[in-house]
Write a protein that binds this DNA or RNA. Structure first.
Length: 691
DNA sequence: GCCTAAGTGCTTTTT
DNA sequence: GCACTTAGGC
């Protein structure tokens, strides 16, 4: 193990093994390196790898840490417990399910399922979803669980009329989940604590098991996560937490950066180490980041510095509209992609919806890319249906999944039949599946029964194939004979390649393992290995990552910072921290891009530049507003009656005289000389004519 | 029970 | 702009 390249502070952070340790690690200060080296050092000092627990927030971070430690230590690294909070919680619950009153084959609801359940409860209580927004109620329940309040405890705080309604729904919701032998995401954090509170002997086992605990991104822990780590490390107090208050960006999910500020109060004789040298970014990038974050009032001053070169100035470009914005980014990517691998290029944005324009442009330019955190695939109806079949095969108490698929494909079981079945199940005190004993529903049950029997004698991929076959999903889609049905079938067949991939990587995998995995890692990109591509993601997902070239798009007031944060100073500060995270992802070059006008909710909006840009000292910025550049306009849907050819002169009624530089299928590319110009697409031919 | 057309409301961020 | 919900006809 190579400790020589560490600086003094980093070395100290690696070597202080016992007792509570707080590492305040600024962006790019080598945090992951310290964490992984620390784990390696612990093992080298004779600590049993099985006694180390390392917890991260995201699957990506866990994987990154695992990979790095494997590189340093080899296979012994597999004995270390490295997981996200949620997967760690899941493991504990799985193991002690009986003590918590769940059967071993419980299933996990995704956020959408939770909302579906809440909608149904609202309906049954005759509450108007327009007044009681299912999403808002879900977030209230989620908040309560993260504060470790079960319905009974929540009732003590439920004072307003609204809160009393939430309480009623919360009770019914939790009841429904238990009956369905199902958990939601928040249960994964809350139930281990319930377990430990009720069974001190079980807690003891974990305290003895994990003598050394490491928590990454501690500034983002919520109450449940905070308590969980505190409980486990209570005996030996070898707890090392790492974080940066300036990068706390999950308050909306209940995270509380006071957890990190209070660490020294929580753990008497805690040692604190500050990592303030940034190894990642150029001076210019760091200066820009600092000039933004210093505007946060409630903040512990720190001095993040770098010995790196000044580097290029930060490029600021203001486009005409969101299409221009995409074209500008493309033009810049094409300039750098010869010197820089695509894997070193990232496009970051505030909201997922912004990826669309970029994707379209990348597709058009034939530049390979991946979108991180696009649950697009798993959210598709056909995929959710398929997963529901898998869930029901695994857990027949899962009424939520059953309701979803009992009429997929169409079996003539409509709303009325389902209502009757719900009633019958209620009366008989059974699950819906159990309550089925006649009619079309019985045929459905028999298919599931058959699949349950077959699962033992076939692989996961074969099981998926059998589902498509036996349920008639495949035949229905083939019979439909539309483009849409074809796409859906393709997606379902693609799902098999995911399971296959999975089996190749992990060997024979049980349905249980697979369901757990896709419940917690629902991002298809994390199941793939495509590296030589441009990465698109939200700033939130980018935390902890770094790239040589970073584009932050949509730098407009209303988008970044988001309009919802305008009224609340603390939310605005969180937006600013988010901006700080975005800027500090860049190693070498950073582009800040925005658009004067933008389509939003089907309406064109004019946005002023982000207040965060105004906060940047102008000396670090290179305003990339090209005075005179050839404007390339593509136009499609050409009038076939007009015969266009290359080098023809045309007049556009807005952009003036131009020359056709390319004709491809029905798309004309026209070059105009125009100020402030970059590429854009004009739909329709009506605005041009030949001269 | 199923299908279609009209109507609505919505986008913050993730496990 | 789109995904989702609802009403009404078959």
């Amino acid at each position: 193990m190579n400790l020589e390249t560490l600086n003094n502070k980093q070395l100290e952070a690696v070597k202080v093994l016992d007792g509570p340790l707080l590492i305040l690690a600024g962006a790019g200060s080598g945090k992951t390196r310290v964490l992984t080296t620390r784990v390696a050092y612990l093992i080298e000092q004779g600590v049993n790898p099985e006694q180390i627990l390392a917890i991260t927030f995201t699957n990506k971070a866990a994987k990154e840490m695992k990979d790095r430690i494997i590189k340093m230590l080899g296979p012994v690294a597999y004995q270390i417990q490295i997981s996200t909070f949620h997967s760690f919680g899941l493991k504990i619950i799985k193991y002690h399910h009986d003590l918590l009153g769940y059967k071993k084959n419980f299933t996990i609801l995704d956020s959408e399922d939770s909302i579906t359940v809440i909608k149904k409860i609202l309906k049954s209580m005759d509450l108007d979803p327009k007044i009681y927004h299912p999403k808002a109620i879900k977030s209230q329940i989620s908040g309560a669980k993260n504060e470790l309040l079960n319905p009974e405890e929540y009732s003590k705080f439920a004072n307003t009329e609204y809160e009393k309604i939430v309480l009623k729904v919360y009770k019914a919701y939790q009841n429904k989940l238990v009956i369905n032998n199902s958990l939601d995401f928040d249960d994964l954090l809350m139930l281990p604590i319930v377990l430990f509170n009720q069974n001190k002997d079980v807690l003891k086992i974990y305290q003895e098991q994990f003598k050394y605990v490491l928590i990454d991104e501690y500034q983002d822990t919520n109450e449940a996560q905070y308590v969980l780590t505190k409980m486990i490390s209570a005996k030996y107090k070898n707890i090392c937490v790492v974080g940066d208050p300036d990068q706390s960006i999950y308050a909306f999910r209940g995270s509380n950066y006071r957890n990190i500020l209070n660490f020294e109060k929580d753990y008497k004789n805690a040692k604190t180490i500050m990592l303030e040298e940034n190894y990642r970014s150029t001076k210019n990038i760091l200066n820009v980041a600092n000039s933004v974050i210093k505007n946060n009032g409630s903040r512990k001053e720190k001095n993040l510095w770098t010995d790196n070169e000044d580097g290029d100035k930060i490029i600021y470009h203001r486009s005409e509209n969101e299409k221009d914005e995409a074209f500008y980014v493309m033009s810049q990517i094409k300039k750098i992609m010869n010197q820089s691998p695509l894997s070193e290029i990232a496009i970051l944005y505030r909201t997922n919806a912004q990826s669309r324009n970029m994707e379209e442009a990348l597709l058009r330019e034939n530049i390979p890319y991946k979108v991180i955190g696009s649950f697009y695939f798993y959210k598709r109806k056909e995929i959710k249906d398929l997963i529901s079949y898998l869930k029901l095969i695994y857990n027949q108490d899962d009424d939520i999944s059953l309701t979803r698929i009992i009429n997929v494909p169409k079996r003539g079981i409509g709303l009325k039949s389902i209502e009757n079945l719900v009633q019958k199940a209620n009366d008989e005190g059974k699950s819906m599946y159990e309550a089925i004993d006649n009619g079309k529903e019985l045929a459905f049950r028999q298919i599931i029964e058959e699949l349950i029997k077959m699962q033992d004698s076939c692989s996961l991929t074969e099981l998926v194939d059998l589902i498509l076959e036996k349920t008639g999903i495949r035949n229905e889609l083939i019979a439909e004979n539309t483009l849409d049905a074809e796409v859906r079938l393709e997606n379902l067949e693609e799902f098999k390649s995911i399971t296959k991939n999975f089996e190749e990587k992990n060997g024979i995998i049980s349905l249980e393992e697979f369901l757990n995995e896709i419940s917690l890692v629902s991002d298809i990109e994390e199941h793939k290995n495509n590296n030589e591509v441009v990465t698109l993601m939200t700033v939130h997902s980018a935390k902890g990552l770094e790239f040589n070239n970073v584009f932050v798009i949509g730098m407009e007031d209303g988008i970044f910072p988001h309009a919802n944060a305008f009224q609340d100073p603390s939310q605005l500060e969180e937006e600013r921290r988010l901006c700080y995270v975005a800027i500090t992802r860049a190693r070498k070059k950073l582009w800040l891009v925005n658009a004067k006008r933008r389509m939003l909710y089907g309406m064109e909006n004019a946005n002023v530049e982000s207040r965060f840009i105004k906060e940047i000292d102008g000396q670090y910025l290179d305003k990339d507003i090209v005075a005179e550049e050839t404007r390339i306009i593509k136009t499609n849907m050409i009038d076939a009656s007009i015969d266009y050819s290359i080098s023809d002169k045309v007049v556009h009624n807005k952009y003036g005289v131009g020359v056709i530089v390319n004709i491809e299928k029905s798309i004309l590319t026209i070059a105009f000389n125009h100020p402030h110009g970059i590429k854009m697409i004009i739909k329709g031919h009506k605005s041009i004519r030949k001269v």
